[in-house]
């Protein structure tokens, strides 16, 4: 999946990226100025400068997002982050404060920096899990509020959703004796 095309990118591709990014930044500009037409005199040049800088600094297109996967991911994310907030609110407000925290080590199957960052951030918003750090050897350390058996299986499911977002396939899961 990781292509080393950063140095050999064609002029045509650079122009294409420049146009796409100018449009994207321009759209954000229109949004934050609440479509004030007078502000376009500033916004259009700024969008072009921003796009030119981003093409110069990051000429590869960011890991391409897979559209149907993105829609499924958005639904999954909204439901799960709601459940995550509800779960932590219940624990905080319950007089007994049910907590059984632990750090678990999750062996990553997902490759690539971009997808892994999305995975780590997603995990932090889902019920009871929080990305603590990346360890060497493709392992993510996750802090959990409630250390139960299915934690690793839950994380594997999240990883599959993130893989779907990028249209990637994961190797089949091997449930080892990691703790």
């Amino acid at each position: 999946m990781s292509q080393q095309t950063a140095t050999t990118i064609s002029r045509r591709e650079r122009i294409r990226l420049f146009v796409l990014r100018t449009l994207a930044l321009g759209a954000i500009w229109v949004l934050i100025t609440e479509a004030d037409p007078g502000s376009l005199a500033v916004g259009v040049p700024l969008a072009m400068i921003g796009a030119a800088l981003s093409v110069a600094l990051q000429p590869r297109s960011l890991s391409a997002v897979h559209l149907p996967g993105a829609v499924r991911f958005a639904g999954f994310f909204l439901v799960q982050s709601f459940l995550g907030g509800l779960d932590v609110a219940r624990r905080a407000l319950s007089p007994a404060m049910p907590l059984d925290p632990a750090c678990v080590r999750y062996p990553l199957r997902l490759a690539g920096d971009g997808p892994r960052v999305v995975l780590a951030n997603t995990i932090s918003l889902l019920p009871g899990t929080l990305s603590a750090r990346f360890l060497g050897g493709d392992t993510l350390e996750v802090h959990v509020l409630d250390n139960h058996e299915s934690v690793l299986a839950d994380l594997a499911q999240v990883e599959e959703r993130v893989a779907g977002l990028f249209g990637a396939n994961l190797p089949p899961l091997q449930m080892g004796g990691d703790s």
């Binding site: 982050s81 709601f82 995550g84 907030g85 509800l86 779960d87 932590v88 609110a89 905080a92 932090s124 918003l125 019920p127 009871g128 929080l130 802090h143 509020l145």
Partner: peptide
Amino acid sequence: HALTKADNL
């Protein structure tokens, strides 16, 4: 955990 999940929600 409390801050990240509950406040964003």
